[in-house]
Amino acid sequence: MKAVTIPVLVGIAKLFSGATLRWVGSQPDTCQRVYFANHTSHLDALILWASLPRQIRALTRPVAAKDYWVRGPIRRYISEVFNALLIDRDKIKVHNSPIDMMIKEIGDQYSLIVFPEGSRNTESEMRDFKSGIYYLSKKRPDLELVPVYLNNMNRIMPKGEFLPVPLMSCITIGQPMWLEAGESKNDFLKRARNEIIKLRDY
């Protein structure tokens, strides 16, 4: 069943988003990566995932909010198809940390798609990043952190709308970065955010 629905869903996502994928700072690779991107639309995760080359897509899991993606059978099915890692935003506790869960789930094989702004943004400027990406990097310093800039997704399906309008969009993938030795949390998060901002001008 999934052998049919995946290409169909990917096709629809690509047609609706008219997305161009540009690798400006890195090459497609199946090594373990964390793609982090700006977040303006529910379609972000789906379109970014669908635009990745097939082999990479098979090894990449978007991290998404559980409360949105389990509501209704269609959303649940879609999240299942693109192998989403669902995080319960309401139950984040020390002993139930999503970071530990992500690390456990990806093992030594999978890559992740994360949106460090936490939730969809309606402003033109990106919000400050949540600290998850810092702790993830601290616990697994070998993961490549790859910045991704998603352009125009908010016009395809803005926050609060349910019908997408098929405009065009552009996905720019930048240079990998890592947590520097002794870098503080705030400096690291600021640097990561700037990496995405830099991609806007490409």
Binding site: G18, N154, R155, V165, P166, L167, M168
Partner: peptide
């Protein structure tokens, strides 16, 4: 037409409140 129009609208700034108008316009 569809392809040309989505390019046109992509290059033209619209506001979030135009979203539903765009839906009629493009589809």
């Amino acid at each position: 037409s569809f392809w040309a129009q989505r390019e046109f609208v992509t290059l033209t700034p619209t506001k979030p409140s135009d979203h539903r108008t765009l839906f009629f316009l493009i589809l």
